[in-house]
Amino acid sequence: MSEYLTVTVDGERVTAVPGQTVAALLIGLGRRSWRTTRGEGRPRGIFCGIGVCFDCLVVVNGEPDVRACRRRVADGDAIRVQHGAQTPS
């Protein structure tokens, strides 16, 4: 198991730590919001932090609606902000 993981956040290469959640990675990068709501495009980031509220949704490897607070980063992950309701890409 390598000491660091390499992932991309909105296309930019960054380093993550094994066991790190996507939310902790994004917060560590200084991000506070990474989703906009379906209705009025309001910015959202982490809220409940334990997988209950579904506010912190993010797109991981083309798959939308991934809870950033629960998802552990995997090497090579491509993480993107989510705008409204997205379909898999």
Binding site: R44, G49, I50
Partner: peptide, 23 residues
């Protein structure tokens, strides 16, 4: 209360304890 940066106490605790990350 729906602004990013407003979180539950549990979120702050989980980030601090498991992820060594300050909200």
């Amino acid at each position: 209360w729906d602004l990013p940066g407003v979180v539950t106490a549990g979120a702050a605790q989980a980030l601090a304890k498991s992820q060594r990350t300050a909200i």
